[in-house]
Amino acid sequence: MAFKIESNLLDACALSILKRGDTYGYEITQEMQKAISVSESTLYPVLRRLQKEELCRTYDMPFQGRNRRYYAITEKGEEKLRFYKREWSEYRSAIETILNGGSNNE
């Protein structure tokens, strides 16, 4: 991939994974890695930020004798995700307009 992924975009991706259901750190990393190559450690600051901005909350569930920390999207998080989606589609069409040589030129 020739493009850098900006941190808001990572936030948006993480939120949309959480939107599909509560999940834990390792699974979120794997979900992301299915589509884009992010390093294994990239996600921690993202999740921490989302949590601190109250876009997601966490709870612990026992799993095989240890704790697994689950992340769940909050209402504020869903609102933010809708905002990111709107922004993204605007941004994408703006870039595509340029890449395809202007909106009136076919």
């Binding site: 750190g25 390093s39 294994e40 450690s41 921690y44 240890r66 920390r69």
Partner: peptide, 30 residues
Amino acid sequence: EAAVEYFEEYFDEVLAAGNRTEEEICKELG
């Protein structure tokens, strides 16, 4: 503590998946 907990859990998860050693995970994490 939050950071340490996260990475401890990460080790647990990957080790439980069973196809990588601690050293390999460290290498991946960087």
